[in-house]
Simulated scan of single mutants.
Amino acid sequence: MRLEDMSIEQLLEMNQIICERIDELRAKQDMQAIMKLRLGAKVHFNTPDGKVFGTLIKVNRKTVVVVSEDRRQWKVSPGLVKLVEDVS
């Protein structure tokens, strides 16, 4: 079936199904990310202004809290946070 042939009701139903699937995939991705994180871990994530480095201080179900090197606290999605690899 082509999108052009679908009614508004059909399109809205399809949209709801797609949004639910996206939410499921994001939740799964966040849970996998949380399982790799530990309090005190050195992490980084990207912002529009560049990469932020910091320490993980709290892990919630849907977010993590990071204290950056400039002592700012950031609440971000766990899927956006990456562990800093030890280069020693």
Rank of each mutant, 00 (worst) to 15 (best):
E4C: 12
E4K: 11
D5W: 02
D5E: 11
D5F: 08
M6Q: 12
S7W: 15
S7K: 06
S7G: 13
E9I: 02
E9K: 08
E9D: 13
Q10D: 13
Q10R: 14
L12R: 15
L12P: 10
L12H: 08
L12K: 14
E13W: 09
E13K: 13
M14D: 07
N15E: 15
I17D: 14
I17N: 10
I18N: 09
I18T: 10
I18R: 14
E20R: 15
E20M: 09
R21M: 10
R21P: 01
I22C: 08
I22V: 08
D23V: 04
D23C: 06
E24N: 09
L25F: 11
L25K: 02
R26W: 06
R26Y: 12
R26H: 07
A27Q: 06
K28H: 14
K28S: 13
Q29G: 04
Q29D: 13
M31K: 12
M31R: 09
Q32M: 10
A33F: 07
A33V: 04
A33E: 10
A33Q: 00
M35Q: 11
M35T: 02
R38V: 09
L39S: 10
L39F: 03
G40V: 03
G40D: 15
A41Y: 15
V43F: 00
V43M: 02
H44I: 00
F45L: 05
F45P: 00
N46A: 06
P48T: 03
D49V: 06
D49A: 03
D49P: 02
D49R: 13
G50R: 05
G50L: 00
V52G: 01
V52W: 11
F53C: 04
F53W: 01
G54A: 06
T55M: 06
T55V: 14
T55R: 08
T55Y: 05
L56Y: 08
L56C: 02
V59I: 15
N60I: 07
N60K: 02
N60H: 11
N60L: 06
R61N: 11
T63W: 05
T63N: 12
T63S: 09
V64L: 09
V64A: 01
V64F: 02
V64P: 09
V65T: 15
V66P: 03
V66Q: 06
V66D: 01
V66A: 07
V67F: 04
V67K: 10
S68G: 05
E69P: 04
D70L: 12
Q73R: 11
Q73F: 13
W74V: 14
W74E: 10
W74T: 08
K75P: 00
K75Y: 07
V76D: 00
V76N: 00
S77E: 05
S77I: 04
S77F: 03
P78K: 05
P78C: 06
P78H: 05
